[in-house]
């Protein structure tokens, strides 16, 4: 069955790794984001790796009136339509503290924008009777921490949204995988202090593909973050509130 992936935030190196992997098996990729020059380079790369179609397409999470156009483009492809969402932004918490208005953009990029997009896409997936949504959240969404709780809150919102969307799409044969990466070696984390057990983006892509194949609901990547977060989630609030991890 032919499959076409809409990849939102395709300039992320995690997205690049996933796009390449699905391209190599002959799927189509619609690479959506803001940096068209970069997306075009990736489209050429995916085409050379075997993608059935590979196109760069403009997407700004803060401009929802552009969403329909992307869905329409996908509708022109036969077979299953899937989507992988890598969009997100994480301004340093200190900057948000200084300028609370930044919350809006953070929530928009990491939660409400992607959610609005998926909401626009869902009817097409239902019509086709299948397809997968991969939503990249974060371990930061599992518990609010002093270091990045606004970003974490946006991701938590996205997790909850994805869980509901899964509930909805299951009925028409579709599936939703919630992906919670730990620390990944990308542009977002480059040079940030205190990173540990940092995984290469290719590892995240590998784990995502396995999860899609096995129809997993929620994955942590690399896997051990499930246990790290299990512990962190179970620290009693009276203790947790005094910690700075």
């Amino acid at each position: 069955m032919t499959e076409t992936w809409i990849i939102l935030g395709a300039t992320s190196s995690m997205a690049r790794a996933l796009a390449r992997a699905v391209a190599a098996r002959g799927d189509g990729v619609l690479l959506a984001g803001r940096d068209m020059e970069d997306l075009k380079a990736l489209a050429a790369d995916c085409a050379l790796r075997g993608a059935r179609v590979a196109e760069a397409i403009a997407f700004d999470a803060r401009k929802p009136n552009g969403f329909k156009k992307i869905v329409d483009r996908a509708a022109r492809e036969e077979g299953m339509i899937s989507a992988a969402v890598f969009v997100g932004s994480m301004p340093p918490q200190s900057e948000i503290d200084a300028d609370p208005a930044l919350i809006e953009g953070t929530v928009n990029d990491s939660f409400s924008g992607p959610a609005m997009f998926l909401q626009t896409l869902a009817p097409l997936m239902e019509e086709r009777g299948g397809g997968t949504v991969v939503g990249v959240g974060s371990v930061a969404g599992d518990r609010g921490r002093i270091g990045n709780y606004v970003y974490g809150a946006a991701k938590a919102g996205f997790h909850t949204y994805l869980s509901g969307l899964r509930n909805r799409l299951t009925r028409s044969g579709g599936h939703v995988v919630t992906v919670k990466p730990g620390f990944v070696d990308t542009a977002m984390t480059w040079g940030i202090e205190g990173m540990f057990l940092v995984a290469p983006p290719s590892k995240v892509a590998e784990d995502i593909l396995k999860a899609v194949e096995k129809k997993k609901n929620v994955i942590y990547t690399p896997f051990f973050w499930r246990y790290i977060m299990l512990i962190i989630r179970h620290i009693p609030e009276p203790i947790f509130k005094k910690m700075s991890i």
Binding site: S13, D38, A41, T186
Partner: peptide, 9 residues
């Protein structure tokens, strides 16, 4: 060390 991921960077 900087590690640009795109030409614009």
């Amino acid at each position: 060390i900087a590690r640009p991921e795109r030409l614009s960077s």
